[in-house]
Amino acid sequence: MRLPCNCNNILGLWLVFLVFIFSSNVYAYPKRIASINLCTDQLLFEIAAPNKIISITYLSLDPEISNHPKRAKKYRVNHGLAEEIVHLNPDLILAGKYSSLSATKILRKLGFEIAEFEPAVSIDGIYKNIERLSNLIGRPNIGRKLIQKIKHKFNPDNMENHAKKPTAVIFKARGFTLGKNSLANEVVLHSGLTNIAQDKIRGSFDYMPLEQLIALNPDLIITDAFNENSPSLSQNLLKHPALGKITQIGSRENHPNVAVVPARYWNCGNSFITHALAQLKNWQIKVNK
């Protein structure tokens, strides 16, 4: 087909314009993203295009705390050190607000673009982080979908609301427990359980003496199976015979009184929080029988 000359010109202009728009779009959104924090790693895996990621932390390789250990293997890992990041020359660095502070400081001084993310201590916090990251990297739609997915599960109408609420305490290695203003607390409450530790501890997290846990005698002890394969005194606390007695069994797993929720579902705020919720809802129903 032969187009009139001026038409050709117009098409040419259009092409130039489109190329300009397109290229400016590609230029505006980061192509080389590095993350120096486990939680921003996890968000990246959920939102970013795989080819835009250039480095994530070594922690993402650990299947106990990372939801994407296999995908993590494809990338160069870092240990949150500025030196490791500099020569990768990223155009966006994702960092936690309270971790690797000196690395963040140096990288900013060197002129890198850094986005610091607050750790999510609520479901709203997760939404905020997803929204912010998806906008930053030019994938707002994916972010919106993700938020919708979580919102669907955490819909107040879906909240388990029975007259009788089973009591629960989160009790991890070293007696680490969570209370008010924590992500875990919100999940526990939404599943229809009451976190009775929240009135017993001072802040949003604390270490609870084993004796206090036994005195509280909750319907459900929520723990994780974090690092059970390598020995530590901290983890040994969960094998204390007193805990065995209170739950009436030798091995904790699969007993109605102890819910093992993998750490990776809720140690960071991302869409896997729905898995934690689903598990706890099941436990709630079991315990509430």
Binding site: A173, R174, N227, S230, P231, S232, L233, S234, Q235
Partner: peptide, 8 residues
């Protein structure tokens, strides 16, 4: 190997 070890 255990990350808690350093606390201990």
């Amino acid at each position: 190997p255990n990350p808690f070890a350093t606390f201990e």
